[in-house]
Computed example of a mutant assay.
Amino acid sequence: MNANTRTLLILIVVGFGMLGLGMSSAKIYDTFCKITGYGGTTQQAEENLSEVIDRKVTVKFDSNVADNMPWVFKPQQKEMEVQLGQSGLAYYTVKNESDHPIIGVANFNVTPIKAGPFFVKTDCFCFTEQRVEPGEELPLPVLFFVDAQMDEDKRMDEVKEITLSYTFFESDNQAQQATETSGSNAEKTLN
């Protein structure tokens, strides 16, 4: 094998490697953020095993919907004060103002970004897609705690407030599920 052929093969392998990395980078980045809390990504846990300590933080709640999504989405409380390690239960409300069912998925983050690794959700509407019928209004709970280990991190000494923010988007599965639903309805009509 001559030098030109070897160089060509190396460039082809590198090119395919870069293409593969580019195609999977969003999933890799999402996994990285979930593990490290980078970018304000919160943590998830099955239950709260954190010790409750005296230090308190105020958790503020924010809500948004993607452009052209006919939902009204609001927190039921603007803020709540919790002790580190103490479980908190907050509710958001969503209403579908369209004339057809919509499946939504919520993305979330916290600010300040450095608080992400300490903000832990044990149950959240954001873990699954939400199907909301026309005119339907639903309460959406989120059960969370701020890990007491935050008190041991000197970078977190000035953090007195944490904002939990959600943005709802239409699910990528929207078109597929709409087709399945209309097919199911056609079958019911025939029977």
Rank of each mutant, 00 (worst) to 15 (best):
M1V: 09
N2A: 10
A3R: 13
N4I: 07
N4D: 08
R6A: 04
L8C: 03
I10A: 08
I10Q: 01
I10H: 00
L11A: 10
L11Q: 01
L11E: 00
V13T: 07
V13D: 00
V14T: 05
G15M: 01
L19D: 00
L21D: 00
G22M: 01
M23L: 12
S24H: 03
S24T: 14
S25V: 02
A26V: 07
K27F: 09
I28R: 02
C33H: 04
I35R: 11
I35W: 02
T36D: 01
Y38E: 02
G39R: 04
G40V: 06
T42N: 10
T42D: 05
T42R: 06
Q44A: 12
A45L: 08
E47C: 03
N48G: 08
S50G: 07
S50Y: 10
V52G: 09
V52C: 10
V52F: 09
V52W: 09
D54M: 06
D54N: 14
D54S: 14
R55K: 15
K56N: 13
K56C: 12
V57K: 12
V57Y: 05
T58P: 00
K60G: 10
F61E: 01
F61P: 13
A66N: 06
D67A: 15
M69E: 10
M69H: 02
K74H: 02
P75A: 05
Q76T: 08
M80L: 11
M80Y: 01
E81G: 05
V82C: 11
Q83P: 00
L84E: 08
G85H: 08
G85P: 10
S87Y: 01
G88R: 03
Y91I: 04
Y92E: 05
K95L: 05
N96A: 11
H100K: 15
V105H: 07
F108R: 15
V110K: 11
V110Q: 10
I113V: 15
K114I: 15
G116W: 04
P117M: 10
P117R: 14
F118I: 09
V120A: 12
V120N: 13
V120H: 07
T122P: 02
D123K: 13
D123Q: 11
C124T: 13
C126T: 07
F127C: 01
F127Y: 11
T128D: 06
R131H: 03
R131G: 02
G135R: 13
G135N: 09
G135K: 13
E136P: 03
E136Y: 05
L138M: 14
L140T: 06
L140K: 03
P141C: 09
V142G: 02
V142A: 14
V142K: 08
V142E: 04
L143S: 11
F144A: 03
F144Y: 15
M150E: 03
D151V: 12
E152C: 04
M156P: 07
E158L: 11
E158A: 14
K160H: 11
E161Y: 02
S165Q: 10
Y166L: 05
T167H: 02
F169P: 00
F169Y: 15
F169E: 03
F169I: 01
E170Y: 07
E170P: 05
D172T: 05
N173A: 10
N173R: 12
N173L: 08
Q174Y: 02
Q174G: 05
Q176Y: 10
Q177I: 14
Q177K: 04
Q177G: 00
A178V: 04
T179Y: 04
S182I: 07
N185G: 00
A186L: 14
E187Q: 13
E187D: 04
L190K: 15
N191Q: 10
